[in-house]
Design a binder for these strands. Structure first.
Length: 306
RNA sequence: GGAGGGGUAGCGAAGUCUGGCUAAACGCGAUGGACCGUAAAUCCAUUCCUUCGGGUUCGGUGGUUCGAAUCCACUCCCCUCCA
């Protein structure tokens, strides 16, 4: 049993900044819990921490994939767990920092993903996607229902993505999606949630996007575009995919930038929904000054002593 | 001063000719939510007020009518063009 701390929250609340302070004060190492910062070359748009900002704190799971590579929750879960063990083995505190709720949850709840072998198969996925294209999403959903009506009860017809995934799991594992085995949790987590007034958060997001553009976001996105990014998973990232239509001459730069801001705000909202409802988070508002990093550290230390 | 065009819910925008089926399409935004291997993905719900019985709306006022966002009169504001 290992004790792990995690800092979660929406984009632009200041997770990175406080993570450094906490890691320093509590002798921790950071494990990024971010689905986009794993990619090399996506620095500005993902607000990735740069080496000169790390203050000597080791950071893991950043820049571990090429931009054209695939990465999944299971990969994350696997790698993160490995890091947790190594860091704990060094006698230091593993500190997960990131906004990808699904990733963090996979870790915290030890979701059954990576343990039973390779349950992901692009060819089979493609097969179901094609099936959907050919016969429609209703037919696709019906197919799932005939195989796993329990899964179908939870996945809407319109959510083709998840219907396909459920079908894929059945095809690959031979077991219904809804009956994949579950594990118990081995590690203990203290979840620090950073949040603030919604209006303020949105302002920060807008400002940060402007800053990103100033720092060369457009050029960075252009490189991704030139390299073939639109077809890659990394090309789905906010801050990048909104710029592609601009490169294609389909919208103005200004429109693209506004879209980045909007998508970021929507994203922040979804993140908040996730952390509010799916996890046992201890919330702090550092932005307004209502709470302080000191308080977080005190709470964290108390929890570590238990 | 003259000639046209327009004012509809947070915003944009239908509906007006052919009055009722319209608390008023649709889009956006906003808010809430789902989420078990693409998750910065994908999807869902709500959005005039409401004590959920109902109440009050389509610039304003007054008419016509069983009934008006829709027809008539007057009036206020906005835009374009001509002076």
């Amino acid at each position: 049993m290992t004790k792990v701390a995690a800092i979660v929250g929406p984009t632009a609340v200041g997770k990175t900044a406080s993570s450094i302070q906490i890691a320093r004060d509590l002798d921790g190492e950071v494990i990024s819990g971010d689905s986009m910062q794993v990619y090399k070359g996506l620095d500005i748009g993902t607000a990735k921490i740069m080496p000169d900002e790390m203050q000597g704190i080791p950071h893991h799971l950043i820049n571990i994939r090429q931009a054209d590579e695939h990465f999944s929750v299971a990969d994350f879960q696997d790698l993160a767990n490995r890091q947790i063990n190594e860091i704990a083995g060094r006698g230091r505190l593993p500190l997960i920092v990131g906004g990808t709720g699904f990733y963090v949850q996979a870790l915290v709840d030890n979701l059954n993903l990576g343990s039973n072998g390779n349950a992901e198969d692009p060819a089979i996925r493609k097969k179901w996607e094609d099936y959907g294209h050919a016969y429609g999403k209703q037919a696709l959903w019906n197919k799932l229902q005939s195989l796993d009506s329990e899964a179908t009860a939870k996945i809407p017809v319109n959510n083709v993505r998840r219907v396909v995934r459920a079908l894929e799991v059945i095809s690959v594992t031979g077991q219904p999606f809804s009956q994949q085995p579950q594990h118990d949790n081995e590690n203990q987590f203290y979840l620090i949630g950073l949040t603030t007034d919604r209006k303020v958060l949105y302002q920060r997001i807008n400002q940060r996007v402007d800053l990103m553009v100033k720092n060369g976001l457009v050029e960075e996105a252009r490189q991704l575009w030139d390299a073939g990014g639109p077809n890659w998973q990394s090309g789905k990232g906010i801050g990048y995919h909104e710029l592609f239509p601009y490169f294609a001459g389909q919208c103005s730069l200004n429109e693209a930038i506004n879209k980045i801001k909007l998508d970021s705000r929507h994203y922040a909202k979804r993140q908040l929904t996730w952390f509010r409802n799916k996890m046992n988070v201890h919330w702090y508002d550092l932005v307004s000054g209502k709470d302080s990093t000191k308080e977080i550290e005190v709470d964290l230390k108390n929890w570590l002593k238990k």
